[in-house]
Design a protein around this nucleic acid. Sequence first.
RNA 1: GCCGAUAUAGCUCAGUUGGUAGAGCAGCUGAUUUGUAAUCAGCCGGUCGGCGGUUCAAGUCCGUCUAUCGGCUCCA
Length: 646
Amino acid sequence: MINITLPDGSIRNYEAGVTGNDIALSISEGLARNVLSIKVNEEIWDLTRPINTDAHIKLFTWNDDEGKATFWHSSAHLLAEAVEILYPGAKFGIGPNIENGFYYDIDFNGHSIAEEELAKIEQKMLDLAREKQQFQRSEISKTEALQYFTKKGDEYKLELINDLEDGKITFYKSGVFTDLCRGPHVSDTSNIKAVKLLSIAGAYWRGNENNKMLTRIYGITFPKQKDLSEYLVMLEEAKKRDHRKVGKELELFALSQTVGLGLPLWLPKGAALRERLENFLKKVQKEYGYDQVNTPHIGHKNLYITSGHYEKYGKDSFQPISTPVEGEEFLLKPMNCPHHCEIYKVKPRSYKDLPLRLAEFGTVYRYEQTGELHGLTRVRGFTQDDAHLFCRPDQIEEEFEKVIDIVLYIFKTLDFNDFTAQVSLRDPNNKTKYIGTDENWERAEKAIIDVAAKKGLRTVVELGEAAFYGPKLDFMVRDAIGRKWQLGTIQIDYNLPERFELEYTGSDNQKHRPIMIHRAPFGSMERFVAVLIEHCGGNFPLWLTPEQFILLPISEKYHDYAKKVLNFLKNYDIRGLVDERSEKIGKKIRDAELKKIPYMLIIGEKEEAEEVISIRKHGEGDLGTFTLPDFAKLINDQIEQTLNKI
RNA sequence: GCCGAUAUAGCUCAGUUGGUAGAGCAGCUGAUUUGUAAUCAGCCGGUCGGCGGUUCAAGUCCGUCUAUCGGCUCCA
């Protein structure tokens, strides 16, 4: 007999060799029907795998992320099996579960799959699922594994197996399909009731652009048809919040091929919104002791040779601008740091001057590859809310913490609650991508990890995501369809101060080297506004929105009163406009609702006589009658409340 | 840059097996003077993404380039 400890701490006795399925059944039949995988001590197992020793277990169902992961991973195998049957000779790369569903990378031997063929594959998957195919796990020696895939002629699996350690290789077989796989899997395919293959894309084998491009099929499956329908509706809804769509509808920004790819044009409403965001941050930065500076849009090529950026990015950048002087070259500024270093150097600095915090809304230009351009989130010309903090070593922690405070304050103010703090470190296997000494890297990485922990941030660590000159703490926020974007970023840099030979005189009257913190709480104005649009679906907070109200006169007779109201509210710094068209009130309301204007002020005979306004709130409806001062107070109180939340 | 799909009026779209373009909205003009999500009528607006090719004839078929979309790679 063995002891099985359940998550609530209770212990049950079972015969050795008991499986997850047996345990689930012994608890309840309902659980047995819904259970998908089991955690045995720290590993997640198949439900059919015998447990032979005492263990702590946890059963996973569809309601657990781990349960979904198992379900989708098994679905990926089902996809592969369908493809193997329908397209003999197809070779398989990897097929993992992802956050929402799964994919499989497949080499179709030159055949390119058309979207219409997906329906056929879906149907095959459903047919196979109904056969209630069991997932059979087998441990296999490396030699046998190699033999199997040599015979099958699948070079991708052979490559994977070659990287694995003998004795730790397992195969999973379901139906006619056998795959190299660590598992775990669901017991059988019968729970997979709804299948949707979402898209086809190219993906480099092993993520390396020098390798062959395989065909990646993305899909998602559910235990109920209803779940699938709801998911598809949710995807459609999310697309309605896309900043490219909303930005066009609300006339916030535009892109012109004639101006150039990835060079956004800010329209009046978008520009005004952006200005309010900039002023908001400027005010915060003033409180935190930042000095605002301005630097030119170009810089001498030597500036970037000194910084190391030219060597790293020079050939992939906008190419140098020549001048009439032979050999003289300037670069469009791809970042602000070198300019700020030169500001540091304009005079000798004392330890008493530090930290020096130089801030600039600096517009930079980077030649992103065409395939990477994306709305406002990935562009070639953008404005960073940049600042560089030049610190003494003993100031690093405190300064870093204060930057985190600014980022969190901004996120809080704008209701960005769903973000990830990502500690972006070096790729330990590819140190040549980075400059600077190991010692400095280790110091910087440790500082970031320590401060993030001290601030109580829930962090994830990503290797290989550091900048080439230093590690970062990145604040990642999702867009409407779940893609993650880096917004705020904080970076510790020991390298640029060395390259620019920055110095300060210490209390010991000796020269010392400062340390730089690069930081941008928004990241860039473009990307931040894009994510903000998607976050609120174009229904901006009152303090940011282009028009806070629109006056809707019932007829032309009330235009004079409308102007009076407009002027009154203007004196309270409340912005809006009048709809003077000779349309019926229903039409004016409809248009104002579509423009997502927060307050519609309806005025007619009654309102003019009583010097009041009838208020209709966007998305909510009639709020009743207000006097002008009461409405002004309503607006200003609401804004104050938003901006003062800590 | 790579893989795949797409490209028709300012916007959203229709256009049968190839026979030289339509709708709604927006805009303009006029009528209407309106009470909480679309008043009516008329008008304007397109070398069907660019360039080549096949054909008596191309929005429609083929090639190529460009851009957009979904991914991959990249992101100082």
